[in-house]
């Protein structure tokens, strides 16, 4: 019969129309200020600086790599100096102009010290442009717990890597210290032994620098 297809189509439309009032999967609206979507871990918005224990000691060493790599050039860093004018390994000022930043994440990628990461904060609308949107270091610094909270996977991986690096560094330092100590001791024993040892032991010593402590015992 002519028109039956139209009626069938209308029935589908009507069913969908009615369902859109009570079916849960059809009520898609997020009532934003009260309810929010669950934050995706990989969401990234604006960069922030991370500090380990105290905000006075940020991880950033003011190496200026991120400022050089930032595509729209919105990072300005001034390195801190001590009283003698010797540059310190931390920033005196660190400004990111959020009105220019394009959320690209290059700064996070290039930072060799894992000091800058992308944040989840997005409620950043401001009335003023120049002062309000220029984020200075006191607004950028956030503790590492914050990073762990917003991006646990990345944070765990990076913390583990940092720990490994630190341990390796410590081990190397210990080894170096032991070697230095051994050398010093060897020199000492050598100096004390010089008068009463025979001359033929001497050529052996430089070949085994790690051994003298054992010999000295």
């Amino acid at each position: 019969m002519f028109g039956i297809g139209v009626l069938k189509g209308m029935a589908v439309t009507f069913k969908n129309f009615v369902e859109s009032y009570y079916k849960k999967e059809r009520l898609t609206t997020i009532e934003y200020p009260e309810k929010r979507l669950a934050e995706k871990e990989r969401f990234r918005n604006f960069p922030f600086l991370i500090f380990d224990e105290k905000p006075e000691d940020p991880r950033c060493v003011a190496c200026d790599i991120c400022a050089k790599e930032c595509p729209p050039q919105c990072i300005t860093i001034v390195r801190a100096q001590d009283a003698q004018g010797k540059p310190l390994k931390k920033p005196a000022t660190f400004d990111i102009d959020y009105s220019i930043c394009m959320n690209c994440g290059v700064c996070e990628e290039v930072c060799p010290f894992d000091a800058i990461f992308m944040d989840h904060e997005f409620e950043l609308a401001e009335y003023g442009r120049f002062e309000d949107l220029n984020y200075t270091i006191d607004r950028l610094l956030k503790p590492k717990e914050h990073f762990m909270k917003i991006r646990p996977t990345d944070a765990t991986r990076i913390e583990a890597e940092l720990k490994k690096k630190e341990n390796a560094k410590k081990a190397a330092a210990e080894k170096a210290a032991a070697a230095a100590k051994a050398k010093a001791e060897a020199a000492k024993t050598q100096a004390s032994q010089v008068p009463d040892t025979k001359p033929e032991t001497k050529p052996n010593e430089p070949a085994q620098p790690a051994d003298p402590p054992a010999e000295a015992k």
């Binding site: 934003y32 200020p33 604006f46 009105s99 930043c101 997005f122 609308a125 401001e126 009335y127 442009r129």
Partner: peptide, 20 residues
């Protein structure tokens, strides 16, 4: 009146700007 940073800002950010 309102500056809304982001590249681009997500829809909630626009709503936040509107609330401002």
């Amino acid at each position: 009146d309102v500056h809304l940073p982001g590249c681009p800002p997500r829809p909630e950010a626009l709503l936040h700007g509107l609330m401002k």
